[in-house]
Every structure is written in C-alpha cells, then in structure tokens.
Amino acid sequence: MFEAKFEDGGLFKKIVEAIKELVKNVNLEANGTGISLQAMDTSHVALVALQLNEKGFKKYRCEKSLTMGLSIENLQKILKCSGNDDQITLRTQDEEPTTLSFTFESKNRISEFQLNLMSLDQEQLGVPDTEYSSVVRMPSNEFTKICRELGNINEAIGIETSKEGIKFYVKGDIGEGQVSVKINDTEKPEERVECEVDEPVNLSFAVRYFNLFNKASALSSQVILSMSQDQPLVIEYIIEEMGSLKLYLAPKIND
C-alpha cells in the first residue's frame, strides 16, 4: 500500500513539466524514505534525478518498496486534468501495481484518475558522492536567461570558474561573447551569487540541455551548479522542504 499526498499539487506539476522534454519513460521508486526517480535522457548525455523526502508530504505511507514504470507524456495528460492549487494524492493498493491512482482535490471538486503503468527494465546509474571543486549558487532566472541568450550564438557554452565568480562564454560562427556573473552578498537570498572554488574549472556543454531543464527554475529562485574538471556538471534545484531535482550533464571534451 502506497499513498503520497502533495499539499501543493502545483509543485508536482512543475517537476513533471521540467523533466518532460528530457526523459520519456521513467521508473518512479517509492519506499519508506520517500519517492525517487532517475532516468537518462534519450541521447544518454544527461541524467535526471529527483528525490522527494516523505517528510515533505501532507500524508505519506509506503509499506513496501515499489517501482512504478510510467510514461511522462501520459502522466502529463492526467496532470493536465488538475488545477495548480489542487492537493494531489498518488496511491496504489497492490504490491506489484499495474495502475497508479491520482486524486485531485480543490475546494469545490474532487477528481479521480488511474494511469496504466509499464514495466521498464532501465539501467540505474550509480552516482558517486563527489566533492566538487567549484560550486556556484546563483539566481535561477539569471542562469536561465544567460543560457537562452548565449544559446542563440552557439550550441556549446563554456563555463569558467574563478575566485571572482563564474564566466559563461560562447564562440560561434557568427562571433563570440561572454557573461561574467560577479559574487554578491546581497541580503536578498534569491539574488545572491556565491562561489566556492577550490579548483577553477573550464568546461564546455551542449546548452540545449540547460534550456530544456531550466523549466525547473519555477521550482526554486536559486540554482546550484557543481563542477569538477572533465566531470559531469550538476544543476540542482532545491525543492523547499521536500528534496531536490538534479540534472547531471556530461561535458563536451575537446579532442
């Protein structure tokens, strides 16, 4: 028996919105500690990882670990029947569920849906706990804007960190450009830029993945970029009181 109730159903909708362009079918894992999801994008360049802790739910019960294979596209069709202010409850009765039930509750109506599940034998990747040599925290809409603007100039974006801050740069056929974001210690937490640089990095990534993933900036006003030279970058959106949504993106290595 599994039951998880989102106080803020809109949050769950934003999470699905953020990953729907990157992953098609996913295994949703539920156990006593909460819900998690890990899936590679179709080109196997990126890995999406979601972790939602049971304490963040209005109601949470999971007697036995469950794996529920679902199509993100079909999940979206069900969620489109809910309002952004609804409370959303996920529920299954059986140990090997073939469907996942949804209840959408608002002041004046209650809706029930069942999504058919699939059996997906997807390889799970072991993401090692890593000490990153550069960790940058910045406003998520600033990062989204820089990726979108520089992505118009070139499909690969360079990221260089130093004690002073983080520099994004592009060199394309039409020309080149760079944006340096400076550290600030403003008292407004959502506008703060912090850099912890033990070792500077200089990495290159396909910016299209950032642009696909940056829909997640609706989840948090800040984004955390963790980097080490020649390692995948991690973009992390902290989901207040619940957990986090991460994108691991493999770098482009110059031959």
Binding site: V127, A206, P232, A250, K252, N254
Partner: peptide, 12 residues
C-alpha cells in the same frame, strides 16, 4: 566531442 553520461557513472 560529446561524452555520454554512462561513461562517468557505473550502472548499479
């Protein structure tokens, strides 16, 4: 050259 994510993380 674009690397694959699985080349960094072992499948568990």
């Amino acid at each position: 050259m674009q690397k694959k994510i699985a080349s960094f993380f072992k499948s568990s």
